[in-house]
């Protein structure tokens, strides 16, 4: 689950950079290239995150509802950080149940 947690954080950071840095630069400082650079980077981060979500679901680390929760959280600014905290709790619960 470490990879999934890292991917959630990476996705959340790129989304924040897109919303809080690149978009204000585009609309307020007239630097459209900021979005042209940040947009594809966030797109890649989202694809990698989605890959980790589906892999973890198929592996049985999370259930379908958890996968849906992570997917929806990825569209909300700061949602990725909530996702990461939820994943941390999930992995602690998983560890407790196996020991």
């Amino acid at each position: 689950m470490t990879g999934l947690k890292r991917a959630a954080i990476f996705e959340a950071l790129t989304l924040l950079a897109l919303f809080c840095l690149a978009m204000p630069l585009k609309y307020w400082a007239e630097v459209p290239s900021a979005v042209s650079i940040m947009g594809p980077i966030h797109g890649l981060a989202f694809m990698i995150f989605l890959w980790f979500v589906i892999r973890s679901w198929a592996e049985g680390l999370i259930n379908g509802l958890g996968a849906l929760r992570l997917f929806i959280g990825a569209f909300i600014p700061f949602g990725g950080f909530v996702n990461e905290r939820w994943l941390r709790r999930q992995s602690e619960d998983f560890r407790c149940s196996t020991t």
């Binding site: 797109g43 979500v53 589906i54 198929a58 592996e59 049985g60």
Partner: peptide, 25 residues
């Protein structure tokens, strides 16, 4: 094409997840 690539990478994720599960279970 982006949607189809998303589906293809999702399929890869599902395959790898099933492989890891098969090995452990």
């Amino acid at each position: 094409k982006i949607l189809l690539v998303l589906a293809l990478s999702g399929l890869h994720g599902a395959l790898v997840g099933k492989l890891r599960r098969a090995i452990s279970e």
